[in-house]
Simulated assay, not measured.
Amino acid sequence: MAAAEEAYIPAAKLATDERLEWVPLSLTLVEYPQGDWLGKLLAVSSLLPFGILSGFVALILFRRDLHTITFFFGTTLNEVLNLVLKYTFCEARPMQRSALYTEYGMPSSHSQFMWFFATYMVYFVFIRLQHMNNNSLLENAWKTVITVGCVSMAALVTISRVYLQYHTWKQVLSGALVGFLFGSLWFALTYLIFTPVFPLIVSWRISEFLLLRDTTLIPNVLWFEYTNSRQEARARSRKLVSMKSQ
């Protein structure tokens, strides 16, 4: 009993103990030179992968679309591949820091993540969505904006990792190459192998319980959901008015 009491250390005492070492969550920690506005901007831009991951989680929770889930699963495999490569090459980063998720920098995980995402999105926009609205001028402009935006974000994050001395050019370019190749492979697998079995998957009982759905054959999901929700709202409004009038 006495030993247990000695082992317990109150939180207040821990907070004032000078021997206690506090460790930052280095996964989201980005350092930049003090007073360098460009470095600060690039440091913020290097957090884009975490914003994309948050978007994935929100889409999966609220939309339950199988293609989004498959895309996210590919992103996860891409990160696993990066860790395997990092601990295979064991190449040090250009500048040593006390707080880092991993001390190895070859290939850059940020660069690999962003180029995987950008590559997949470009294929998705120009191949998967090719049957929408007969390639109208507005649609082509929309596709161009998405493509340029994704590639620009990937390039910005890639440059930021070199500027902030988290990686060398060789490390970020290697990450970009791996991300491009794996993104191409994953899109091919999704488009040619996974997508044809989506209708079967959504028919499973567990899929019905989880509200999973397949929107592959719907050209414009946003317009489809907008028109259907508007029609349902009008129908319910008319029904409500009819019930009040009785």
Rank of each mutant, 00 (worst) to 15 (best):
W22D: 09
S207F: 04
Y226F: 09
A141Y: 04
F198M: 03
I159A: 09
T147H: 07
Q246F: 11
C150R: 06
L173D: 00
F71T: 02
S237Q: 14
A99I: 02
M95Y: 05
I193L: 15
Y191W: 12
L42S: 01
K13A: 13
Q130I: 06
L212M: 14
L212F: 07
A7H: 14
L200F: 15
Q130C: 08
A188T: 08
Y120V: 11
A233W: 05
F50D: 04
T168I: 06
M121K: 12
T119V: 08
N220A: 03
T147P: 02
Q231T: 06
S136D: 15
S45V: 08
L41W: 11
L41M: 14
E232R: 11
Q231H: 07
F50A: 12
T227Q: 08
L27N: 09
L61K: 03
A4F: 14
S26L: 01
S152D: 08
T70L: 03
V125G: 01
T144G: 11
T76G: 13
L47N: 05
I9T: 09
L217F: 09
L100F: 02
A235F: 09
L129E: 05
R97P: 03
L138G: 15
A188F: 12
K40W: 14
A155R: 06
V44W: 04
S245Q: 10
G74R: 05
A3V: 01
K143Y: 13
S54C: 12
K40Y: 11
I60T: 04
G39L: 02
F50S: 14
S184F: 01
W169L: 10
I206P: 13
V84M: 03
Y226V: 04
H131N: 15
Y8Q: 06
P196A: 06
E103V: 04
E91T: 04
F124R: 10
V44F: 07
M1Q: 08
S245Y: 09
V157W: 00
Y8C: 03
W22A: 07
S152A: 15
A154M: 03
P196V: 04
V202S: 00
F89K: 02
Q130E: 10
M95G: 01
L100C: 03
A2R: 13
Q165R: 10
I9Y: 01
L53A: 15
D65V: 04
W22V: 12
P94R: 00
E103F: 01
S26I: 05
A233T: 11
L27D: 10
F126S: 09
D17G: 08
E232W: 07
A92F: 03
V148W: 04
